[in-house]
């Protein structure tokens, strides 16, 4: 039995997870089905969303915020952040623009989350 907190949304449900049989993980305490998926992933292959900001040239502000389109394997967090350090985008930037495609080969893109207009 393990206690964990679902981090999928700000409700932060307190989950009780029976992982005695990895083929049949039982979860209670979740408000919605995403809690079950979270608990199973957390035991087998934990994933996290990564958000950050990268430089933008010629825009109305100096940095544009970015995120992974979906959660990526936890062990790739710092590798993907390292790649972001070298990126400089050109204004304009739109929400959803791909900043790095298929980051670290995990199949997930990093995309922009803010509108930047030309200065």
């Amino acid at each position: 039995m393990r206690e964990m907190i679902c981090i999928n949304c700000p409700m932060g449900c307190r989950l009780t997870v029976d992982d005695s049989n990895l083929q049949d993980i039982k979860v209670t305490g979740n408000i919605c089905p995403r809690g079950v998926i979270y608990a199973k992933n957390e035991i087998t292959s934990p994933k996290r969303m990564v958000t950050g900001s990268v430089k933008v040239a010629g825009g109305n502000i100096a940095m544009v915020s970015v995120k992974t389109r979906e959660a990526i394997p936890k062990h790739l967090i710092f590798d993907s952040l390292e790649l972001l350090k070298d990126v400089v985008l050109q204004a304009p930037v739109h929400i959803g623009d791909v900043v790095i495609a298929d980051v670290c080969g995990c199949g997930v893109d990093i995309i922009a989350t803010k509108e930047i207009t030309k200065a």
Partner: peptide
């Protein structure tokens, strides 16, 4: 859906 702050604002 789960958005970042700037996306929600937009």
């Amino acid at each position: 859906e789960e958005l970042t702050g700037p996306e929600y604002a937009q």
